[in-house]
Simulated assay, not measured.
Amino acid sequence: MTVTPQAARATAQLVPAFRGRIGRDARSGHYAVPGRYRLYLSTASPDSLRIAVAHSLLGLDTVCSVTFLPAVPDCPEGGHSALRPLYEASAHRYIGPAVAPVLSDDWSGRIVSTHAPDIMRDLARRFDTGGLSLYPCGAESEIEAVERMCAQGMDEAAQRAGSSDGGQAERDAALGTLLETLDALDRWLVGRTYVIRDEVTAADVELWVALVQLDTVHRNHLDAAAVQRIADHPVLWTYARRLAAHPAFGTHLDLDGIERRHHARCRGLEAAGAAVQILDWAAHAAH
Rank of each mutant, 00 (worst) to 15 (best):
D47V: 10
A158I: 07
Y194V: 02
A271F: 09
I22E: 06
D74F: 07
E142P: 02
L132W: 03
A10V: 14
I22Q: 01
C266R: 04
T11V: 02
E144N: 11
E140Q: 14
G162E: 01
T62Y: 04
E170N: 00
G29A: 05
A264K: 02
C75G: 08
A54D: 07
I119H: 12
Y94E: 03
S90W: 00
L58R: 06
P46D: 03
L211D: 08
L255R: 13
V53F: 08
R260Q: 15
A7P: 10
E206A: 12
R50P: 09
I51K: 01
D165H: 12
A240Y: 07
A248R: 02
C64A: 13
Q277K: 14
E199K: 08
L14G: 05
L134F: 09
V99P: 07
A173E: 13
R24Q: 13
A124Y: 00
E77S: 11
M149A: 12
H246V: 15
A145W: 10
A82R: 12
T114S: 14
P70V: 07
R229V: 03
R148T: 13
A283M: 11
R121G: 04
V200H: 00
H55Y: 07
T4C: 10
A52Q: 13
G191F: 10
A203L: 06
R265V: 12
V195W: 04
I278E: 03
A151I: 11
T238W: 07
I111V: 15
S90P: 01
S56A: 15
G268H: 09
G35Q: 02
T238P: 00
C150N: 00
G109N: 00
D47A: 15
L178T: 09
G268E: 13
D280R: 10
V217Y: 04
R21M: 00
G35N: 05
P247C: 06
V15D: 07
V102L: 02
V112N: 12
M1H: 12
S113L: 00
R24Y: 12
L222N: 04
I258D: 03
P85S: 01
T181V: 08
Q168S: 13
I278A: 02
V205R: 04
V99E: 14
V53E: 05
R21T: 05
H115L: 11
R242D: 14
G138F: 02
T251A: 14
R197I: 00
G257Y: 03
D165I: 08
P117Y: 08
A158Q: 08
C64D: 06
R21E: 00
L243S: 12
A275I: 04
L269S: 14
L185I: 12
Y239M: 03
P70W: 02
F249A: 09
A226C: 11
T181G: 09
D25W: 11
T11E: 06
V63K: 06
I143N: 01
S90A: 00
H115N: 14
A151D: 11
A32C: 01
R260T: 02
T181C: 10
R125C: 13
H246T: 13
M154V: 15
S42K: 02
A282R: 15
L182M: 09
G153Q: 05
D155V: 12
A145C: 03
L211M: 10
D204I: 10
V209T: 14
S42Q: 00
V190Q: 14
L103F: 01
G96M: 01
P5V: 07
Q213M: 15
I95N: 05
A124L: 01
D105L: 05
C64M: 13
H80S: 08
L60R: 07
S48R: 06
L123A: 03
R36A: 10
